[in-house]
Write a protein that binds this DNA or RNA. Sequence first.
DNA 1: GTGTAAATTTCGAGT
DNA 2: ACTCGAAGTTTACAC
Lengths: 232, 232
Amino acid sequence: MRLVVARCQVDYAGRLTAHLPMATRVLMIKADGSVLVHSDGGSYKPLNWMSPPCTVREGQSDDGRVEWTVTAKAAKGQTPDTLRILIDEMFHDSSHNLGIDPGLQKDGVEKHLQELLAEHPATLAAGLTLVRREFPTAIGPVDLMCRDGAGLSVAVEIKRRGEIDGVEQLTRYLDLLNRDPLLTGKGAVRGIFAAQEIKPQARVLAEDRGITCAVVDYDALRGLDNVEDRLF
Amino acid sequence: MRLVVARCQVDYAGRLTAHLPMATRVLMIKADGSVLVHSDGGSYKPLNWMSPPCTVREGQSDDGRVEWTVTAKAAKGQTPDTLRILIDEMFHDSSHNLGIDPGLQKDGVEKHLQELLAEHPATLAAGLTLVRREFPTAIGPVDLMCRDGAGLSVAVEIKRRGEIDGVEQLTRYLDLLNRDPLLTGKGAVRGIFAAQEIKPQARVLAEDRGITCAVVDYDALRGLDNVEDRLF
DNA sequence: GTGTAAATTTCGAGT
DNA sequence: ACTCGAAGTTTACAC
């Protein structure tokens, strides 16, 4: 890992064309040759970058300034990517041996929400019981397949944030499931769209299609499950 | 901008819970208090981070090691975010004044593709002429509304990469447009799904719905338009 | 490897 | 301020 602070100008050409005027920035060159150009603001996204695999070549511009050329192998059907960094003045330059990182351990994403709802399906609708998780269909697995008190099949799609594409996804599943006589024996398969937060447009579309929306309280579910000991 | 190289352990709690075991990493602390934890690989995304606005407080752990606590104000309906960085050994520490960045200038995204196709609709289908760009509907604007040689209305959806959700979007527009007698006077509104690249599944879904797929050659369109002088 | 869905997405435009 | 759609998205996972 090499860290450089320099006044530089950056030009990118590849999937698009982009230009950064001369200014002072941080350049991070990772062991795999990837390069990140950061300013003193914004979020974690660099102003410009080059993803691995790529190679950095140090050269000189016409007027004798240092110029880095970072090139990546062209993906099929794409223009080859090039990042050109022209360095006007270097204020800092240091290299560090970091070693391999053990990596991130995560908890709390959709998968976990699915586990919790699989254990407590009745929080979605009274009388709901689980048939199986990841119920397979020809176009992909349904998050939860349940049965309600009347014996009707209920397909549940779970999202952290409920947006329009999640409703589309559930609609595709319902179209398919309702062609299966084994499931529709006692009546049409119902849909429940469950999310921690449901966007207004998604709600409108869901209700227009007869899909029930359920806003899920993640913390309350966690409480039901007493999973505090899973935390670090 | 402060750059630190240190052996550290990182714990995040907020929208999810995440943990990074003790290892050597680069810590970037930006002027707005945001923090990035980078390893010597991966893409531009940090292993862990805290987005602005947030504040860093330097303290000590129980055993006397340096500990940074980064806190962000809780977003509505969310758990407050906290990033705890326990520093075992610091190998590098430097601060730099970068100033404000003039920012990135871009070219070549979907908007530009839409401009080019608006100028040359006939490249999508022979005889096609533009009615208007961003044609408004109740559920959002159609990228291009055109008319074909026979006087039929044609709705065009433009994507850089054509995936299944783009076809869904166009389908929703067509459903709606086909209820408007002003548009369907001479026959049903047709759909064209235009993209630089169309995924096989998206193509199948589109054709199943009677939507025409058009693969767009961006460079060729650019050539028609003679826009080389727009480049840097 | 290809394809699909999620992300602590981030970013920008429009209302 | 909020909402929606795009991103040089990146990342993880299933087939």
